[in-house]
């Protein structure tokens, strides 16, 4: 038996043969992330007249294994912005820490002392602080810079909040730095399964501006249900956030309600069933 520390915990060479060091990839080019490891699935979001509603389930998968079931994929920034992460969970954690540093730097900025006499409009978007649009611009630069150094952060990100004109803001950026905005957005499977539903209610900015908060929440819940029905890497526990000028309301342990699997019987064409 080899008692040297460097051999602790290793399979015995005399039984299993020496470790195949070629797996360590000591030669050849340096490689970075080639694929995500522990992943989160869809994030969906839709604008309504005063703000944005966003949701994502609480699952982190390791391949097809439902590995962690209490993972919070909606993060907040300065009580003004919600950020939803799809894709690699460890990269999400990196970004979360990075955003926390950014928020700390922001808090160092002295709060402007408002004179008593001035009745400044009491909007909660703090003057002088980064709003959702500013933060999104930053993330977009960061993601594109990382892809250009061939070391991408393997995520699709949705950013929701208010812009400089206090209008609802929603935009997305992915691991390639591609970014766009729309009245409703979804990452991953959601782009195929949830977007068509959300577009029925908020096809244009004008339509979105007619939605009430309650309607938007209903649409998002409906989409989460469809995603749970049809996305094998999803969960029926999820987080949902509403962001508007009053701040953020984030619920992190919601249960999908009124599920009905009756439709499953009608699905035909694959699996073990015989037609």
């Amino acid at each position: 038996m080899d008692h040297r520390p460097q051999a602790w915990g290793r399979p015995r060479d005399d039984v299993y043969g020496a470790y195949d060091a070629s797996y360590l990839n000591n030669s050849g080019p340096r490689t970075v992330t080639q694929s995500p490891v522990v992943t989160g699935t869809s994030v969906i979001a839709i604008k309504y007249k005063d703000g944005v509603v966003m949701a994502a389930d609480n699952l982190a998968s390791y391949g097809s294994l439902a590995r962690f079931t209490d993972v919070k994929r909606l993060r907040t920034f300065l009580d003004t912005t919600v950020i939803g992460f799809g894709g690699d969970v460890s990269d999400m954690q990196f970004l979360d820490r990075h955003l926390k540093e950014l928020a700390t730097d922001e808090s160092y900025e002295v709060e402007p002392t408002l004179d008593d006499e001035d009745d400044e409009e009491s909007s909660s978007s703090k003057p002088g602080h980064l709003n959702a649009a500013n933060l999104f611009k930053y993330l977009q630069k960061l993601m594109y810079q990382r892809r250009n150094s061939f070391d991408p952060l393997w995520n699709q990100i949705l950013v929701a909040g208010l812009d400089s004109d206090s209008k609802p803001f929603l935009a997305s950026v992915d691991l390639r730095g591609t970014s766009f905005t729309s009245p409703s957005l979804a990452t991953g499977f959601g782009a195929a399964l949830a977007q068509p539903i959300m577009r029925k209610y908020a096809g244009t900015e004008e339509d979105a501006a007619k939605l009430t908060r309650e309607q938007a929440v209903e649409v998002v819940k409906e989409c989460m249900k469809v995603l749970f029905y049809r996305d094998a890497r999803s969960l029926d526990r999820y987080s949902i956030a509403v962001v508007n000028k009053d701040g953020i309301e984030l619920k992190e342990d919601e249960q999908l309600e009124k599920q009905s699997w009756a439709f499953a019987e009608r699905i035909k064409g694959y699996g073990t069933q015989t037609v």
Partner: peptide, 12 residues
């Protein structure tokens, strides 16, 4: 301005 698309706060 390039990173955040806003006016830099004067105090910073």
């Amino acid at each position: 301005r390039l990173t955040y698309s806003r006016n830099m706060p004067i105090r910073s």
